[in-house]
Computed example of a mutant assay.
Amino acid sequence: MSKIGIVTFPGTLDDRDAARAVRIAGAEPVELWHKDSDVKGVDAVVLPGGFSYGDYLRCGAISAQSPVMGAVIEGAKKGLPVLGICNGFQILCESHLLPGALIRNHHQKFICRDQALEVVRTETAWTGAFEKGQRIVIPLKNGEGNFQATPEQLERIEGEGQVVFRYLDFDPNGSMNQIAGLCNEAGNVVGLMPHPEHAVEDVFGPESGSGTDGLGLFKSVLESLLG
């Protein structure tokens, strides 16, 4: 059985949800602590949502310097699949595993809603189970989900096909080009603002969509690990 590490930082609050999603997908979740110096031989890593270190300095900035992230960065460069959700996406950007930055929502308010997304790229470790152009609905909850990049970064992101998800119907936080999720050039590292771990069970998923649209990310990584 594949093992997927779930990192807990001080202030993380969606680690248990991520672990449940991993179990439902058919893998074994492994607890990783922010002070760990290695990732315990796991096959993939999830950086969950929350408010790591109270979002002090910048969201994800302190977590990016934690011991476990040294091991995550080293693994990611060697092909380890890594998924960053919400605060985890912010940490990936602060760690320079993904380009750009997440700043305060343009309307200066926290948002919590079911959000429609377009699956833009399926050639990643975390999206192979989807179809290109597929519409999915998963929960979104953030105050700093506004993706921004320099013109040069944005041109490269679009040119290299690094956009994985876009917001549909409307842009909830002011993100450039309605970008909701990105991958690195190799496709093994993916970050997104919405929360797929909250859409893995019919009873508890969004009322619109299938209710389990988020499960595809966790199923995808297991398929990619099998080759």
Score class of each variant (00 low, 15 high):
residue 6 I to D: 04
residue 6 I to R: 05
residue 7 V to A: 05
residue 8 T to D: 07
residue 8 T to G: 01
residue 9 F to V: 00
residue 10 P to F: 05
residue 10 P to Y: 09
residue 11 G to F: 11
residue 11 G to Y: 11
residue 11 G to W: 13
residue 12 T to W: 11
residue 14 D to T: 05
residue 14 D to M: 05
residue 16 R to H: 04
residue 19 A to Q: 05
residue 19 A to S: 14
residue 19 A to N: 03
residue 19 A to M: 12
residue 20 R to Y: 02
residue 21 A to D: 03
residue 23 R to W: 00
residue 23 R to H: 00
residue 23 R to Y: 00
residue 24 I to S: 04
residue 30 V to M: 01
residue 37 S to G: 15
residue 39 V to Q: 04
residue 42 V to H: 12
residue 43 D to V: 04
residue 44 A to F: 10
residue 48 P to S: 09
residue 50 G to A: 08
residue 52 S to E: 07
residue 53 Y to F: 15
residue 56 Y to E: 06
residue 56 Y to L: 02
residue 57 L to G: 00
residue 58 R to M: 00
residue 60 G to M: 02
residue 63 S to K: 07
residue 63 S to C: 13
residue 66 S to I: 02
residue 67 P to Y: 14
residue 67 P to C: 09
residue 68 V to W: 15
residue 68 V to D: 12
residue 69 M to T: 10
residue 71 A to K: 05
residue 74 E to C: 06
residue 79 G to Q: 07
residue 83 L to I: 02
residue 84 G to N: 01
residue 85 I to D: 01
residue 86 C to I: 01
residue 90 Q to V: 05
residue 93 C to P: 02
residue 100 G to I: 09
residue 105 N to E: 05
residue 105 N to P: 09
residue 107 H to C: 01
residue 108 Q to R: 15
residue 116 A to E: 13
residue 120 V to P: 08
residue 124 T to F: 02
residue 125 A to I: 03
residue 133 G to Q: 10
residue 139 P to D: 07
residue 142 N to A: 13
residue 143 G to D: 07
residue 145 G to M: 10
residue 149 A to G: 13
residue 150 T to R: 00
residue 154 L to E: 13
residue 161 G to R: 13
residue 167 Y to W: 03
residue 170 F to C: 06
residue 172 P to W: 14
residue 175 S to H: 09
residue 177 N to F: 00
residue 178 Q to F: 11
residue 179 I to P: 12
residue 179 I to H: 07
residue 187 G to P: 08
residue 189 V to G: 03
residue 190 V to A: 06
residue 190 V to W: 02
residue 195 H to D: 08
residue 195 H to N: 11
residue 197 E to S: 13
residue 197 E to M: 14
residue 203 V to I: 15
residue 207 E to N: 14
residue 209 G to W: 10
residue 211 G to D: 11
residue 213 D to T: 06
residue 216 G to Q: 04
residue 216 G to V: 08
residue 219 K to P: 01
residue 221 V to C: 10
residue 222 L to C: 05
residue 226 L to I: 08
